[in-house]
């Protein structure tokens, strides 16, 4: 019976006992490293989305409060018309991205790459459209500090746009570079999560703008 020290107990058990079947590897792979499970990347992206959402919710609450001041100098702004087109483009890009992932899962690689490319182009078009929206605002004399409503417009669109830019970078990165740690499935899943979140977020922001216009 063990009266030995704990270090000896560790030594005896160190070989591993029954090989373990865990989520990280099969029972034979004792000397191997469990590594990072693929689903971890998905968890990470969900968490990142949570953090980003919280950031935008802070802006939304600031917007709600600011609008609601009594004797407020709030002047609703006329929305640039191109925003409607941009919205359609961004939502479409979510569909094309979903199409791309679906093709990948079905094994149709070329199709997948094709739709992935379309998504990237649509994303870029969205950003171009947002910049055009800004130009329309400038033309109407509405700049960042013109009035509170215009301030929020620029803050929301800039913050969202920067995140979309990051999304486009991710789309390009996945297209050009084979990730070492992530499988292609995981990489596309993660990018899709991010991208769909940005589409949904834009719909919320756009709805806010429409509400007060």
């Amino acid at each position: 019976m063990p009266t030995s020290s704990i270090d000896e107990l560790i030594e005896r058990d160190g070989g591993g006992g029954a090989g373990y079947h865990g989520p990280f590897g099969n029972g034979d792979d004792w000397s191997g490293n469990p590594g990072i499970p693929q689903r971890t990347y998905v968890t990470g992206m969900i968490l990142a989305v949570g953090g980003i959402l919280m950031f935008f919710m802070a802006l939304v609450s600031a917007w709600v409060v600011r609008r609601g001041f009594p004797n407020s100098d709030w002047q609703p702004i006329a929305l640039p018309r191109i925003l409607w087109l941009n919205t359609v483009i961004l939502v479409a890009s979510s569909f094309t991205l979903a199409r791309s992932r679906h093709s990948l899962i079905a094994g149709r690689d070329t199709d997948s790459r094709h739709w992935w490319g379309v998504t990237t182009i649509l994303g870029a078009l969205f950003l171009v459209g947002q910049l055009l929206a800004w130009r329309q605002m400038f033309a109407a004399g509405l700049f960042l500090a013109t009035n509170p409503s215009s301030s929020f417009f620029y803050v929301f669109t800039a913050a969202h746009g920067l995140h979309v830019l990051g999304g486009i970078a991710a789309l390009l990165l996945v297209a050009w570079h084979s990730p070492r740690r992530l499988t292609r499935e995981t990489a596309t899943h993660v990018v899709a999560l991010y991208w769909h979140f940005l589409s949904a977020l834009w719909l919320i922001i756009f709805a806010l703008f429409l509400l007060e216009a």
Partner: peptide, 29 residues
């Protein structure tokens, strides 16, 4: 951390804009 620092970040951005871009998120007339 995930939920709180996001909000501080938002506030900080608005403060920067008030300071350098003449906005008035926190500054009354």
């Amino acid at each position: 951390s995930l939920l709180a620092f996001s909000v501080l970040f938002a506030g900080g951005i608005l403060l920067v804009l008030d300071r350098v871009a003449a906005t008035s998120f926190f500054l009354p007339a």
